[in-house]
Design a protein around this nucleic acid. Structure first.
Lengths: 209, 209
DNA sequence: GATGAAAATTACACTGAGACAAGTTTTTAT
DNA sequence: ATAAAAACTTGTCTCAGTGTAATTTTCATC
């Protein structure tokens, strides 16, 4: 059953709003573009924009919603015998080789521009945090189920995992935005990731800070 | 050199704004109190409120600014021979015995009301995240200096530490807000903290999730 | 203790986000 | 063809936050 005309149009309108908004944000900065201007650019009323996106920030961040569950899924669908951390390490390294944007290693100009946009806009950064929170929540549930352990420990483990990933990704992004090409960052990113996941698996005990 | 009359008055005004605002927020919810009302309650112009606090959220959160550096200070001032993680564990357990609000274990009504206020207001929660970010940044610098290791590893370690603390604190708060007295939560909080810091020190390798 | 500079406060006007209500157009099902 | 449902529009309202110019308060100096 194909989508009706109504559904098709809705998707197209949402996409048009999104594309115009991103283009304008990248050109002129998030704070210098009003929702009214976006609406005008797409020949739509201001209210319609808010029908599709709950807030102005969501225009940028909604498309990333779909990746919130990624870590939890990797843990759930790992091969039998593989530990949760091993699965997450494998997945992270896999994304690095693929130069995936989710680990901050895509230097496609458009992706990079959006990343720069997010990092340079406090309102967007703050919103991006809540993704981590929700990712952590999903991972916590998954770990609690799988390990049979208490929830608090699962929560702590999930927090450590999510924050580790975030720290690695943010470092990769930092270098990409400083102008280094993804292929140049890759080797260090791999080494950093290996070290970080080692810390996760074996603890900070050896880290004689 | 005592503060001049000018400084004194500024501090008093700021405190008056803060007290009135918190009282009104606790009574009627953050979103149901406008800055105009706060200003009126303190017999001050709306603009003056914004002179003292950059945003409405900052009225609630600015007083917590002073604790951002706590973790970094604990690491810096630890006894020679003590590892960074050991110092942080000691400090955390110490705060638990003191029923400190910073680890979510104060059941003083006013403190609890403010905590509830923050947790029940998305705008405030999101803002509280940025404290973690800054705490992590300070801790990263401290660890990098102390360990002589690369910055990325320090950053990952700091991320794991800060997120662990946050997870523990948030669990304690959850139970307090559910009505349990601090003394009842304390034993579990200690056990949770010991386990969490064990994970930090020895890794998730044993955590067979 | 008057006076002028500096700092704090105010009044006022403005932009922009987001919510809400009531009416209008477009789509879909019959 | 038509009626109900969904999407869109128009207009209005509140409130956060900014900028500026005018006014008041504090402080230092004579």
């Amino acid at each position: 059953m194909g989508l009706g005309l109504r559904e098709t149009k809705k998707l197209r309108t949402q996409r048009e709003i999104w594309e115009a908004a991103i283009r304008m944000f990248v050109e002129r900065d998030f704070d210098n573009v009003s929702v009214a201007e976006i609406a005008a650019a797409v020949q739509v009323s201001r209210k319609t924009v808010f029908n599709y996106f709950a807030t102005k920030e969501d225009i940028v961040l909604t498309p990333m919603e779909e990746h919130v569950a990624d870590s939890a899924v990797v843990v759930r669908e790992r091969a039998p015998g593989e530990t949760a951390v091993a699965a997450l390490r494998r997945d992270y390294l896999d994304r690095l080789t693929r130069r995936d944007a989710s680990v901050g290693l895509s230097d496609a100009p458009h992706t990079l521009a959006v990343m720069r946009l997010i990092l340079s806009t406090p309102a967007l950064q703050v919103r991006a945090f809540s993704f981590h929170e929700r990712a952590q929540e999903l991972l916590t549930r998954e770990l609690a189920v799988q390990s049979g352990r208490d929830d608090v420990t699962a929560r702590v483990a999930a927090a450590q995992i999510v924050s580790t990933r975030a720290a690695l990704t943010s470092e990769n992004l930092r270098r990409l935005l400083a102008g280094e090409p993804a292929d140049a960052v890759y080797p260090d990113a791999v080494a950093d990731a290996e070290r970080a996941f080692d810390l996760l698996e074996h603890g900070l005990g050896d880290y004689c800070g």
